[in-house]
Amino acid sequence: MDATFWATVALVIFLGIMIYVKVPGMITKSLDDRADRIRDELEQARRLREEAQELLAEYQRKRKEAEKEADDIVTAAKHEAELLVGEAKQKTEEYVARRTALAEQKISQAEREAVNEVRANAVDIAVAAARKLLADRVDGSVADSLFKSSVQDLKTKLN
């Protein structure tokens, strides 16, 4: 018998042992298990992808909301700044008006004081001139009679 015959017999015996030990069932079961694992992994990957898309959509929505909120804050800040500038201008104008009015009051008061001082000086000068004239022109007896008449006039005006 030649070597091919014995090789064929050995192959048939080997295949028989394999079938007896249920190697094809094990291989099939192993392949089915692997296919199930791959199917589960694909399903899990699909779920993860859907979750990632949901998260992406949520983050994009949050980003848009944050951008809108930031725009609102910037708009509010600009509006508030405009109000503050307007208020500052108004306060400055009021301050300048008050300071101008105060300066005008001080000027008019200084004018009144100057006029009063000039009048007082004029009265003092007139009194001094009248005294000198009277002293030069009136003698002692006339001065006494003028003094007495002035005292009498004063008494009648006071009573």
Rank of each mutant, 00 (worst) to 15 (best):
A101L: 08
L102A: 14
A103M: 05
A103D: 10
E104V: 00
E104N: 12
Q105N: 14
Q105A: 05
K106E: 15
K106G: 02
K106Y: 04
I107K: 09
I107H: 05
I107L: 11
S108K: 11
Q109R: 10
Q109D: 11
Q109C: 02
Q109M: 05
Q109N: 08
A110G: 04
A110D: 12
E111D: 08
R112G: 01
E113N: 11
E113D: 09
E113A: 13
N116P: 00
E117P: 00
E117A: 15
V118L: 12
V118G: 00
V118A: 14
V118K: 15
V118R: 13
R119K: 10
R119W: 05
R119Y: 10
A120W: 04
A120C: 01
N121K: 14
N121G: 09
N121I: 01
A122F: 07
V123Y: 01
V123R: 11
D124K: 13
I125W: 00
A126C: 03
V127T: 13
V127F: 12
V127Y: 09
A128R: 04
A128S: 15
A128L: 13
A129T: 10
A129G: 00
A129N: 07
A129E: 04
A130G: 05
A130F: 03
R131W: 02
K132E: 03
K132Q: 04
K132M: 02
K132I: 00
L133D: 03
L133M: 05
A135F: 10
A135H: 14
D136Q: 09
V138D: 06
V138N: 03
V138L: 14
D139R: 08
D139M: 04
D139S: 14
G140A: 14
S141H: 08
S141V: 13
S141Q: 15
S141I: 11
V142F: 09
V142N: 07
V142D: 12
V142P: 00
A143V: 07
D144N: 09
S145I: 13
L146C: 05
L146T: 02
L146I: 13
L146H: 05
K148A: 15
K148W: 01
K148Y: 04
